[in-house]
């Protein structure tokens, strides 16, 4: 009998610690499926963040090294420059990527580092208990915006993916969601495309994933999925944001060869 569905090989058998309805486990799984499909488990190095996904190495069966809060793209830069033929990805949340680590994200993107960033946007700080994130919706209540996010006091939701578009170093940026089977399939396709971009040496790729956080949103899992469609996508519309494969083409030369012209 033909096997049509199973656990991805590069996903460990440990049980996810994530809350019921959390999008991390789906994002982990589809990333692992992509790793399997591209047959890159042995050459992939992942950099998990500080945040709920800090324990990602319990799930991903690839080499991993944790980065301090927000420093994933810097850590990934160090690894990729030393091992340019490996597939290096950093997995980060919205606080990690768009607040404390925005400098590292922006400059890794601007240098066109040939890495992939998987960016989980759930509009709150998850692990610390649901505080305001740069991506929190206007009016959204969090533990540090108890009356709802007020633009004049807390600023506006940061659209990092769009911010990276003008940088010539970025090659592929797509925003997806993991709130419905159709969206999950699209997200998986996007991750695969991003990894392929990296494998072809095209430069910085990023997949933003709108991801439900029922616990901190104080909603049911089903309502969380609806909220993504009804609220989040109004500010963070889904779709390919940038796709210019040749923009940051890496020559495949070593720095010594580049240096010699």
């Amino acid at each position: 009998m033909k096997k049509v569905f199973g656990r991805p090989h590069s996903l460990k058998t440990s049980v996810f610690h994530y809350c019921p309805g959390c999008g991390h486990s789906i994002a982990h799984r589809i990333t692992c499926e992509v790793i399997d499909e591209l047959n890159i488990r042995g050459i992939t190095i992942g950099v998990p963040p500080a945040g709920c996904a800090v324990l990602a190495y319990f799930y991903f069966d690839v080499d991993m090294i944790e980065a301090p809060h927000g420093r994933g793209p810097a850590m990934a830069t160090g690894i990729k420059r030393v091992l340019p033929d490996r597939v290096v990805f950093s997995y980060q949340g919205d606080g990690d990527l768009t607040a404390i680590g925005i400098a590292e994200s922006f400059h890794a993107a601007n240098r066109g580092e040939n890495i992939t960033v998987i960016f989980i946007n759930n509009a709150v700080y998850g692990m610390t208990g649901g505080q305001l994130a740069p991506t929190t919706m206007l009016g959204q209540k969090t533990t540090t915006s108890p009356l709802g996010r007020n633009a004049s006091l807390d600023g506006y939701p940061v659209k990092l993916s769009e911010l990276l578009v003008p940088l010539p170093g970025t090659t592929y940026i797509e925003r997806c969601a993991v709130n419905s089977p159709a969206n999950i399939l699209k997200a998986k396709k996007a991750i695969k495309k991003a990894f392929q971009c990296q494998m072809e040496g095209n430069g910085f790729s990023l997949v933003e994933i709108l991801s439900p956080c029922p616990t901190n949103w104080k909603m049911s899992a089903v309502d969380s999925c609806k909220w993504i469609d009804e609220v989040m996508t109004k500010v963070f519309p889904l779709g390919v944001i940038k796709d210019t494969p040749a923009a940051g083409k890496k020559t495949g030369k070593t720095e010594k060869e580049e240096n010699a012209g």
Partner: peptide, 11 residues
């Protein structure tokens, strides 16, 4: 942090 990454990568 880049140094940490490079060090982990073996140089």
């Amino acid at each position: 942090n880049m140094v940490a990454g490079a060090s982990a990568a073996g140089v």
